[in-house]
Design a protein around this nucleic acid. Structure first.
Lengths: 199, 199, 199, 199
DNA sequence: AATGAATGAGAATTCATTCAT
DNA sequence: AATGAATGAATTCTCATTCAT
């Protein structure tokens, strides 16, 4: 990794911390610069402008997230086992990286111009993973087919995002992982093929 | 309603429209004033400052939302029937009020200081409704008891918020109501007592 | 006194109190109106604008001051007796009317446009009184003639204004009258004909 | 002196000129910036806010004043000789720096929050000088001891401030130094030990 | 590449004054 | 005469961005 990349990472890390505390709009370049121990101007050597820096965060961090997720899913078979692991890792990763969680859920996810940016494609890589698993599950015959695949995914992401967002807004006063078992149960119930005996 | 209240409503409506388009931080008082056809200073006759105006929106609109929701739930019996209606009305109301939806989901819901404001209590009134229904359902014996009540609620709100947020960010290009049936199916499956025959 | 005059006095009194606390520039018409229990607009029935109200204060109050001073000087003979009484009354009056004292010394006296206003002539009436006494003293042969009459007056007003200003800025924590004896001694020494024996 | 200090001095000088003409409250940052040939924002690089700039003036200028006063007093012996020189230099310095005189006497000296600021201590350094001289005079046996030392000082400062203030408000149409002889005479008469022969 | 002083556009907010009622 | 809602000009201050060193 070149010296340039090192400084770039320094800036991104500082930006995550500052954004996490204040939100994008209230963060200032000079605060980020100070935290990264560089001059204000230096930031413009690595990023076109404030927005560019802002959008650089999820790209890099989400790629990392995906790569690690892949490792965690390795060797696990069965759609529901993989989904459970996905849920577990999502909660675990954001629990361990609350600054990134804040930026991701309180800033990025609600950004109006997100869809038009490169960030969005890095997100797609991530959410695409769920679709894959769900499709495998349908092929295995364990995941229901009577509901749009995208709605299945919405359920999973929806409950996870909601749980983490609430945890963040409440000041991370409780252990996010406490919810894992219950969320998992609900998701499995929702996604399983409807029981025909009772139908 | 007095003339004063009329002007106040005018400003709130203009604020919703502007916030909806630009987000809170990028909206300016003078843009809202222009849209409301009042002078900049007039806004400060009705609201203490920008933040006060910002937080006045969900208080009033969420109270309206709740009142109408109550009407829609009247006469419906059975926990799942009521939950289905809740889901339907949530989607329907936000579909019909996309500007409010934007402000609610892209601005309010992720606001760091939300929890400490009066807005939060108006939200609680709304989400409290779900808890009530779920508890009734548990007493009826149709809603599962093996999962924390709050996680049940997180599932419902999570999938709804995610669905609407996605719809908003995608530019409302499709009909939000198309998802109603599928979301409803999933929620019912998730919340129903686990089928012991197949267990 | 007509009803109009009553309301006018009410406003002037409120203005003195507000100016005294905040100073002219930081006082607002609406604060004065509130303290006077009238509507903002009403002030403009009695005064052309903020500055007009501002300058109306010393005119009226200084005329009152002069009239009472005259009463106090009645029947006192001898230039130094009269000067002593003047000094005493100056300190006494401002001690009893600290709000007016503030407005007079911290606002009026340093106002750039004062000299061009009607206020200035009401001041002249007041300071003219000193000149009269001093001239009488010179005719009596007790007040020195080797120094410009205006400088004699400057000495008296200077020490009085300085003493009162200091008292005001220090928060009126001590009794202004405590200084009367010493100030009087010094002024008498300064103004007396130089002792030729020691010359 | 670094380039930074140069620009800082430029701003202070511009501020003195503008304050001198309009007074603190009516002066605007952008007018000062224009006169100093810098951008509005530049002022905030050197001063925390408008008030900080305001209070920076007397600190620096009064320190200069004191240093020069010290030089002028060097080698002069005898309390009254030193007091005369003090009076002379006070009048001379303010005559030569009328913008500073305005700021000092029409703005600073009547400022309500002055006492709580750092400025006040720079003033104390200045007025402390008089006390020193007066005490020496008492030890020499030439300055009267029957009057509070602080009142003696009040007399000196009072007459000087009054004389200069009047000169400023009258538009500096006459030569301030014309008053030096008379003021000096009066002050000496006031401060001298009372002549016991005539007592 | 790195710096950080300088910039100046832009935003929130205040408040004297007006005027329809 | 009295009101007080409405106005909008003016002001302070912030901060992303640039550029000479």
């Amino acid at each position: 990794m070149s010296k340039k990349s090192v400084k770039r990472q320094l800036i991104i890390q500082a930006a995550i911390e500052v954004y996490s505390k204040k939100g994008f709009e209230k963060s200032s370049i000079s605060e980020i610069a100070k935290k990264a121990n560089v001059a204000d101007g230096t930031i413009y050597q690595y990023f076109k402008n404030k927005e560019d820096l802002f959008f650089s965060i999820p790209i890099e961090k989400t790629i990392e997230f995906c790569e690690e997720l892949d490792l965690h899913l390795q060797g696990i078979t069965g759609a529901f086992n993989r989904i459970s692991k996905f849920i577990w890792y999502y909660l675990y990763h954001l629990k361990m990286n609350p600054d990134y969680a804040r930026t991701l859920l309180l800033e990025m996810r609600v950004n109006r111009s997100l869809v038009e940016t490169k960030v969005y494609s890095s997100f797609k890589q991530f959410t695409g993973k769920i679709l894959e698993i769900l499709q495998e599950g349908q092929e295995e015959g364990v995941v229901r087919k009577d509901v749009n695949l995208y709605v299945l995914r919405q359920l999973i992401l929806g409950v996870l995002e909601h749980a983490v967002t609430r945890w963040l807004l409440k000041g991370q006063k409780y252990d996010l992982m406490d919810y894992y078992q219950d969320i998992n149960k609900l998701v499995v119930s929702a996604l399983s093929c409807p029981n025909r005996i009772g139908g």
